[in-house]
């Protein structure tokens, strides 16, 4: 019958209209600033720098190796190495970034920086309320703005963070064991006291690059696997 479809359609919209007042299930709108949806754990947008401990400047894991800067496809990372050194989480003296800027207006959220980082120092954030009235300065984040605690990392990506923590603890334990072994070893080759005093000091810097190089070889295959598993 001509016009039957129109009546059916009118009934449908009337049902929607009345139903939206009665049935809360129908109104799927999330009223954003007041209500927020829980983001999925694997969600990501821009990178941040992880630090351990309470002090962000002391605890930054980043050693300014500049791998991420070189790998970044849109070249949005800018790093300046420090002139001096300070101890990292293992306790070894490391260079730290005197300047670490990410231009998030350029960043394309590819996560490559995270995957190449041998120190698990840079991770992806979930923060999306980044609007600012200054589109140049406001979107260029410096290292203070980028630095976020390990607790925060645990909060946004719990599984990934505990994995990383486990790995780091393992490495730390390994490094400590090695350091202990190194500390225990020198007395065996009997040497003059000044030399013995000198070797641990020279051995430690040597051991550190060694630990670093083994780490660079081992972890890179690991993160992609984790990524696939997730």
């Amino acid at each position: 019958m001509l016009g039957e479809g129109i009546l059916k359609g009118l009934a449908e919209t009337a049902k929607n209209f009345a139903g939206s007042f009665v049935d809360k299930e129908r109104l799927t709108t999330v009223e954003y600033p007041e209500q927020k949806l829980e983001l999925p754990e694997a969600s990501r947008n821009f990178p941040f720098l992880v630090y351990d401990g309470p002090e962000w400047q002391a605890g930054l894991r980043c050693v300014a190796c500049q791998i991420c800067e070189k790998e970044c496809p849109p070249k949005c990372i800018y790093i300046e190495k420090s002139k001096d050194k300070k101890p990292d989480f293992v306790g070894k003296l490391q260079i730290y970034p005197a300047k670490f800027d990410i231009d998030i207006s350029v960043c394309m959220s590819c996560q490559i920086c995270v995957e190449v980082c041998p120190f698990d120092a840079i991770k992806m954030d979930k923060e999306y309320e980044l609007s600012t009235d200054d589109r140049f300065g406001g979107l260029l984040l410096d290292r203070q703005q980028l630095a976020k605690s390990n607790e925060y990392y645990h909060k946004i990506h719990p599984t990934e963070a505990s994995e990383v923590d486990g790995r780091l603890a393992e490495e730390k334990a390994k490094a400590e064991a090695k350091a202990k072994a190194a500390a225990a070893a020198p007395p065996k080759p009997a040497a003059p006291a000044p030399a013995a005093a000198a070797t641990p000091a020279s051995a430690a810097p040597k051991a550190a690059p060694a630990a670093g190089s083994t780490k660079t070889e081992v972890p890179p295959p690991a993160p992609p696997k984790e990524g696939e598993a997730r």
């Binding site: 929607n16 209209f17 939206s20 009223e31």
Partner: peptide, 13 residues
Amino acid sequence: KGLGRMQNRIGPN
């Protein structure tokens, strides 16, 4: 508001 309700939206509020 009415059109919003018909499309299961809230409309301007």
